[in-house]
Computed example of a mutant assay.
Amino acid sequence: MRGILRYADADGRVRVGLGDDDGEAVVRPLPDVRDMADLLRRPLAEIRELAAAASGERLAARLADVAVLPPVDGGTEVWAGGVTYERSREARGEESDSADLYDRVYDADRPELFFKSVAWRVVTDGEPTGVRADSALDVPEPELALFVNAHAEIVGYGVCDDVSSRSIEGENALYLPQAKVYAGGCALGAFVRPVWELDDPRAGAVRMSVLRGGEEAFTGEVALAGLRRRPEDLVSSLFDCYPFPDGAVLATGTGIVPDMDFTLQEDDVVDIEITGVGSLRNTVVRGQRALDWLVAARSEPALRGPRAPLPE
């Protein structure tokens, strides 16, 4: 898979480059780009020129020699859309005693949009995702993510796991922020697939499996054609009343929701793949303490990477 990548080189310097993980398996830095927020401040045409310049750059690092980082930083925010697939509407109704709320938003002109994460709390491929210690029913939510610049242009696509507490949201719809926003609750695939390299992301599919003890505990697939709202319309709604000077990432909602008898457990491995976009793999940890390293990693990216849960 080829895409834009944020990484730390052998000297610990954080860079943004154009990576290829199945051909030459190298990454080439984008010229004069300080970080992802800097990149997302620029118009799409300029970003495309920078990527073309990086493709011809001889200076390259092997992917095996760099530390891959989440593809967000600075003031870039992650937002998400909800109830954008028929299955999502059904699932929200199953868990809630206010099912009519979800029926109405599914058909409404105004989409459900909510804040998901600041950049520094996002985890990426190989790092742990978390479930809340006070939640009884938790699920991964695999979603197509839109990387949007400050000018409201979609510049790339990614893979998002919008981890959620069904029990907390189901208890009261007003608890949505607590069900959605917490340490380890947002994962993004490391590679951002440039928009000019993918004609129509909705022509593909989202696939997810959850492995437990080496066995498949859940598997699901949904066609992106089932996404009720156009990605451009979701972006328009998000940018209608919010300034995003460092750009934004917008997850477009999930069409894969397990039945009510499934919940994530510690040490589950969640695998997500989106046709033509990329993949994401994370192991589940429980409780905030296992994600405490995120605070120090704000200033020390070398602290990032796969890690085991801390003892209770």
Rank of each mutant, 00 (worst) to 15 (best):
E77T: 07
L44M: 07
R42A: 08
A54Q: 03
D125Y: 11
D109R: 14
R132Y: 08
R89L: 00
G130N: 04
W120L: 14
A133N: 09
K116N: 01
A64T: 13
L63D: 05
D134S: 12
R92H: 14
S88T: 03
D107P: 07
V83Y: 00
L69K: 05
V83T: 00
D125L: 09
S98I: 07
A64M: 12
A60L: 07
G93C: 08
E90G: 08
V72N: 00
P70M: 09
E112H: 04
R62F: 10
A53V: 09
D73K: 03
G126A: 06
V83I: 03
A80F: 02
G126S: 07
A99D: 09
A136R: 09
S135M: 12
A61F: 15
L50M: 07
E46H: 14
L63T: 08
E57G: 09
G93W: 00
A67N: 08
L113P: 02
P71N: 00
G81N: 04
G93K: 11
L59A: 15
V118A: 14
D97N: 11
L50H: 05
S55C: 10
E77L: 15
K116I: 03
G93P: 03
D109Y: 12
Y102V: 02
S88N: 06
S96Y: 03
A91E: 06
S135N: 09
G130Q: 06
A67Q: 13
D97G: 10
D107R: 14
F114Y: 12
R87G: 10
R48S: 14
D65S: 13
V78N: 02
S98F: 08
T124H: 05
